[in-house]
Write a protein that binds this DNA or RNA. Structure first.
Lengths: 214, 214
DNA sequence: TGGTGAATTCTACGCATGTTGAATTAATCC
DNA sequence: GGATTAATTCAACATGCGTAGAATTCACCA
């Protein structure tokens, strides 16, 4: 007890002031889920990145699955974002082009980036993540489809929607996960004009014939 | 020692006849890598599926990484397959349509299916798998691009190639991994005519304007 | 017929993981 | 200022993993 001048630091116990540990844990979790996927991410790794004991992660978020759910919770409601995007279209810009531009802008918003990419990268390993992604896609894409179909070809609506989904998904995976050189470096606007017409074709074009959707 | 009548079955040691264990292990590995990805797949799980001891897996294939390499080794050389596909195009069919049809046919060949899907699903978790996929994509897509560009717009060749890659990748992920309803159930031909013109646009179209690539 | 080598399983090591419970310290409320 | 509650760490658990080595059984060849 009396040995030594004084205990240099108190190792255990509560810290003074607002430590921000809970937020730091969530931020670290987002980063790691985005980088390594669900399985590749460890609670110990998150704790280390947040400069915190692994048990504290558990104290705040319970199980790993719950932490994942918290980390991938999007700060927006997809359908609302889509409606906002649809409403802001300038004349002279095709629906597809506008949708691609809006999606890219949304995905790269500071408060979306981590959660979205974590969900993307985890979707191919974790069942839960895959289900979340599927919901997101369905919710985010059926809106524009309905808005574009406008009665015509309503039978094929879900087919059209899933075609749109393949292109958007491939764009997201190529740009954020596998990081193909050119597609990862292109500007949002470049990609929007390159890919937009493709989305237009899927939304309203004649899918049994070559050519554009205009 | 002398207790009991006789050992009922010899548990250890070599079996009579050709057991086919090595092939069974490889087949089980392909299935599981395709279903669960690299990290989600365990050697013990593979061994169980092949009705074999985990140590036997090790005996035949050494490390897990080497087993993965063996399981995802494609039975074809991508560039050769592409060249063969290019050569077999019928007149009246666009290059993009033919490429999509050929890719789907190739991916679903019995001897490709397991390996390809294993690679696909693992690419987002394992660095090695991602590198293999990137190589595959580069090799498989740069050929058609070069063949289509034909001097014009050679600067943008890699940009065009990566756009093609996003659509093909999205198609593969949507159809085989996430299994979006309509896109998973559509026939190869349906998808080829729906998506082919998109590939044509990326290969030879004017990427800064709306409209088709013809 | 004996011996070499391959196939197969058993046992076990060492490690990393998710998770838990107790102990300790600070903040907060009466 | 004492009691309560929240934050934090420590130590440990049970489990599952990849891997290694030894032992056992069979096939094949001289």
């Amino acid at each position: 007890m009396t040995r030594g001048a004084r205990k240099a630091r108190s190792r255990t116990g509560r810290r003074s002031g607002d430590s921000g540990s809970k937020a730091a844990i969530l931020a670290a979790a987002r980063l790691q889920f985005a980088e390594y996927g669900y399985d590749g991410t460890t609670i110990r790794g998150i704790a280390a990145a947040a400069c915190v004991d692994p048990a504290l992660v558990h104290h705040f978020y319970g199980t790993k699955e719950r932490l994942f759910a918290a980390a991938t919770e999007l700060p927006i409601v997809p359908s609302e974002a889509i409606n906002a995007a649809l409403a802001s279209r300038e004349p002279g810009r095709s629906l597809g082009t506008h949708l691609v531009a809006s999606a890219l802008a949304l995905w790269e918003r500071a408060d979306m980036r981590g959660a979205f990419q974590a969900m993307l990268r985890s979707a191919l390993t974790s069942e839960q993540a895959a289900a979340t992604l599927a919901d997101f896609i369905a919710e985010a894409i059926l809106g524009p489809v309905a808005s574009a179909a406008a009665g015509a070809d309503a039978d094929n609506a879900s087919y059209r929607a899933s075609l749109v989904a393949t292109q958007m998904l491939g764009l997201a995976v190529g740009r954020y996960v596998l990081r193909f050189g050119p597609v990862a470096q292109a500007s949002q606007e470049e990609l929007a004009v390159a890919i937009g017409p493709v989305i237009d074709r899927y939304l309203t074009g004649d899918l049994s014939r070559a050519g554009s959707g205009h």
